[in-house]
Amino acid sequence: MRDLEAGLVDAATGHAIVATDADGVVVVFSRGAEILLGYPCDEVLGSHVARLFDEAELGSVLAAGDLDTDAPARREWTLRGRDGVPVPAEVVVTRRPGVGGVPAGHLFVATDLTERRQAEQLQDELIGKLGHDLRSPLTSVLGYAQLLDDDTLTDEQRGYVNAIERNGRRLLHLINELQTGTGRSRSAWRGRRIRRR
Rank of each mutant, 00 (worst) to 15 (best):
L4I: 15
A6T: 08
L8I: 15
L8P: 03
D10L: 05
A12T: 13
G14S: 10
A16V: 11
I17F: 01
I17C: 11
V18W: 00
A19I: 00
A19D: 15
A22I: 05
V25T: 15
V26D: 00
V27H: 00
R31C: 09
R31L: 09
G32S: 08
A33C: 05
L36R: 07
L37E: 00
L37Q: 08
G38W: 04
G38R: 02
Y39C: 11
V44D: 12
V44C: 08
G46S: 09
G46I: 06
S47Q: 13
V49I: 08
L52V: 06
F53S: 06
E57M: 12
L58K: 14
D66N: 12
L67Q: 04
L67A: 13
T69W: 11
D70M: 13
A73D: 10
R74S: 06
R75K: 10
R75S: 07
T78K: 03
T78C: 05
R82L: 10
R82G: 08
D83G: 04
D83H: 04
V85Y: 03
P86R: 07
V87D: 03
E90N: 00
E90R: 02
V91C: 10
V92D: 03
R95E: 10
R95W: 15
R95L: 12
R95T: 14
V99G: 04
P103W: 07
P103G: 04
G105H: 05
G105W: 06
L107D: 08
L107Y: 02
L107C: 08
F108I: 03
A110Q: 01
A110Y: 00
T111V: 12
D112H: 11
A119M: 08
E120Q: 11
Q121P: 01
L122A: 13
Q123G: 14
L126E: 04
L126V: 05
L130F: 12
L130E: 12
H132Y: 05
L134C: 10
R135D: 01
R135M: 00
S136W: 10
S136P: 00
S136A: 13
P137K: 06
S140A: 12
L148A: 14
D149V: 01
L153V: 12
L153C: 11
L153E: 02
T154D: 14
E156T: 14
Q157D: 14
Y160I: 12
Y160A: 12
Y160L: 13
R166H: 13
N167P: 06
R169G: 11
L171F: 06
L171K: 11
L172S: 11
L172V: 03
H173C: 11
H173T: 13
I175W: 04
I175D: 04
I175Q: 04
I175K: 00
N176Q: 15
N176E: 15
L178M: 14
G181P: 06
G183T: 05
R184C: 01
S185E: 13
R186M: 00
S187V: 09
A188M: 10
A188W: 11
W189G: 00
W189N: 00
G191T: 07
G191R: 13
R193S: 01
R193I: 06
